[in-house]
Each structure stands twice: as C-alpha cells, then as structure tokens.
Nucleic acid binder design. Structure first.
Lengths: 224, 224
DNA sequence: ACCTGAACACCGTTCAAGT
DNA sequence: ACCTGAACACCGTTCAAGT
C-alpha cells in the first residue's frame, strides 16, 4: 500500500498528499519524530525539498494533516452512557492516543487547533461536549468544560513528550533528593512532601486528575 | 543598575551571568522574545557568541535562569487563609505571571522543571501543596493536587503563548462560522454549540476552570 | 581563566527558472 | 501543472586557538 522506497526502477516523477503522509509515517516509525524535517521527508520520497510545498502549506500544516490522517486510521472507543463517565472515557482515549504520537505535541497547542481537525478526530470533542450537555450544562458551559479538559490534557501531553524527548544520557535527578538545599523554614510544605515528590512524579496521574476535574466541572454552579 | 548598552568608552572585556540576564531582559522588552537567540544576545552584549557558553550551559538553562531571575524581582501576593481559596489564589498568581512572560512557555513543560526552580519561584509550589495538606490531603495526594493544577496551567499558558505568537496577518477564522461543513448527523453536540464556540474561545476561562478543578480535587476520596 | 572566530550540522521557506 | 536547485536568512553548539 505504502510505496516501500525510491529504489524502484524509474523513480516516480510526482508525489501526492497520500504519498507524503505515508512517507512521514515511515520516517517517524524508523528514525523517530525528531527526524521529521522537510528536507529528510523529500529525500525519503526521492523528490526535491521544495516540491513538498505544492502539497502542504508549511510544517504546521503537515503535522496537522498527519494527525487527521492518523485519527482516521484509529478505532474510536465505545463510550459509556453515563455523561460523567463518558467525558472521562473520551478524555482518557484522547490522552492515550496523543501519548502514542509525541510528534503531535508540537501542534496540539496551536491557536484554533480544534477547528482545523477533521471529523475522525472531532468525535472526542463531540463526546465531551455531549457529556456536558447531557449532564445539564448550558451550551456555553459545555464549551468551558471542553476547554478546561483540553488544557489539562495538552499540558500533560506536552510535559510527557518533552520527557520522552530528552536524550537519556543525563537522567536528571528527580529522585529521592529532589529540592536539595531547600530551607524548611521558608518552604515548609514543600519540605514536608519532598520524600513523596520523586515517587509521585514518576506515576501517571492523568486519569485520577481528570476524574477530579470532571467531578468539579459538573458540580452544579461550579462553572460560571 | 543594568548596564545600558555597549556604547560606553572601552567596551567591557568580560560578561557576567547578571549582565547576560540584564541584556536578555532588554532584548525581550525591545524586540520581543522570539528574537532572543544566543547570537543576538551576544551582539547585544558586544561579546562573541561562544562566550555565553562560559556562563550558561545551553539555551534551556538561559531561559530557566531568566525565569528564576524574574521571579526574584516579582512581589508574591498575599494568600487567603482558607486552604481551598489559597490554592486558587496561588494558581491564578502563577498563571497571570507566566501569561506576562510568553518566553517562559517554551521551558515550563520541561521535564523536572519544578525541581530546577529557585526559592523565589517555589513559593507557589509550597502554597499549593500547603493548601492541599491543610485541606486534609495526605502527602502523596498533595503532590497529585499540585501536578494536576500544574498540567492545567501549563496547557493554558502554552496555548496562550502560541496564540499571541501568531503573526497577525492571518487572523484564523475562529469566529461565528467555526466548524463549517460539519455534519450535524455525525457530530450533533458539536453542531449544537457551534454558535457559542467562537465567543467562549475568546474568553479567559482559566480561573473558573481552576476553581472547578480544585473543588473536584479536594472533594474527599476523589483523588486516589 | 576567559574569550574568540571559524566551522559543523543543520533548519524552513522563497523564488526564478525549467519541463 | 508540476517540479527543481540555488539561495536566503537564519539556528545552537563544538573546538582548537588565542590572550
């Protein structure tokens, strides 16, 4: 399905949007998302770098197209009937999907990003907004619920991507002796939890945070 | 206090950490944070680019030092006695401060970022952790409360920085006709709130989202 | 010690020209 | 139409050499 390489007999004289996305997927899979550049992508396809500008507007556009393309290939989960649980399930599904695509991190925080998503990616917005409406939110409140969950998710995803990104040579001592030289007189509470900090920071707490967040957001009269 | 420029009689033969940070502040103030590069910063100081590497380890280190430096110059707010309200006040203070420093966005999501902060910046971690402990959380729960609030804040700040960043030539139609061509059969809830989307997206909903989040996090038995 | 220019190894993007 | 190489305008960082 995806053209394997440029080593065929007569190298193809033209590319398509589909071929570019397929090559990008291959490049990410083989060399890592940090190596996805226009120059390398063009070389992968056996075309000139500037040829890509006939099919994608710029780098941001490439990554958003890639995200929409991948979303279309991903099965969407069955969601619970309970509105509250439905929002949580949709949030976790989005989180787990984006966690598997660290290259998407650079683009999820783009202004107006949601509006640029295609239908296969928008189901999650619909599920969260729908859950909020079914729980009794007004339309405006439902948008706030989505935005809040979105900011939380984006924050976690970007920190996660930056963590995975880090070259493993310097492990960054976040372990037992976090906050060494911390004055317990001036920062007493931080000193108190110092021992828990490293252990807790290593855990994935996204789901429990989300559960608390949705609980607070759906409490009558909390939002607005 | 800060050396005004390099136009003095005999240009100073050496830089210091302090001079570098002062020059960086000036460069950001005059030309915008996007123009803060090692090459430009060195030119500003009248030294060779590579000289900077004797005072800061790399670009990330420069920005974190700048953040700690700015935090030390910023007055910290009076915080309410009520633990719940204290967490909210600290969160808003952090948010409002970071919103004024868009150059910090690139670094707040760094792995182990919090541990690299100095005491003048750590008061906010202490305030949030302290509020959680005073509200009856265990030490581990208090760390989860901080992390959750932190992810939410980071997400909002990064989206905000990316929005401000955008060159204003293309305004990105997020207005009334968001989600044009959206099929109401397939995404009914999104279609329902379409009219509210643009208006709500333009509002600053950080504080109300935070209030809901903290409410949910401090509800007994919600976290863990 | 502290500073330096040159060089390395890249980027995204524009543009005028080719087929 | 579609594709192209060359060029523009940059980056952060390393290194061997100078004072």
């Amino acid at each position: 399905m995806a053209p394997s390489s440029s080593s065929r007999a007569g190298r193809p004289p033209r590319t398509s949007r589909e071929a570019i996305l397929a090559a990008a997927r291959g490049l990410i899979a083989r060399e890592g998302w940090q190596r996805l550049t226009f120059r390398r992508l063009a070389a992968e396809l056996g075309v000139g770098t500037t040829t890509l500008y006939h099919h994608v507007r710029d780098r941001e556009d490439l990554v958003i197209q890639l995200l929409n393309d991948q979303a279309a290939r991903t099965a969407r989960p069955e969601l619970p009937g309970d509105p509250h649980e439905r929002i949580i399930a949709a949030g976790i599904a989005v989180h787990d999907t984006l966690a598997r695509w660290p290259w998407a991190a650079e683009v999820v925080a783009t202004d107006g990003f949601i509006v640029r998503l295609g239908e296969p990616a928008l189901w999650m917005v619909d599920a969260i907004v729908g859950g909020a409406l079914d729980a009794g939110c007004t339309q405006a409140e439902a948008v706030v619920v989505f935005r809040s969950v979105w900011y939380y998710t984006v924050g976690e995803i970007i920190v996660r991507a930056r963590t995975a990104d880090r070259p493993s040579d310097a492990p960054r001592a976040v372990d037992a002796d976090s906050f060494t030289g911390l004055d317990p007189e001036r920062l007493p509470h931080l000193a108190a939890v110092r021992g828990e900090w490293g252990r807790e920071s290593a855990r994935d707490t996204y789901a429990e945070g989300l559960r608390a967040f949705v609980g607070g957001l759906l409490d009558r009269g909390r939002v607005r």
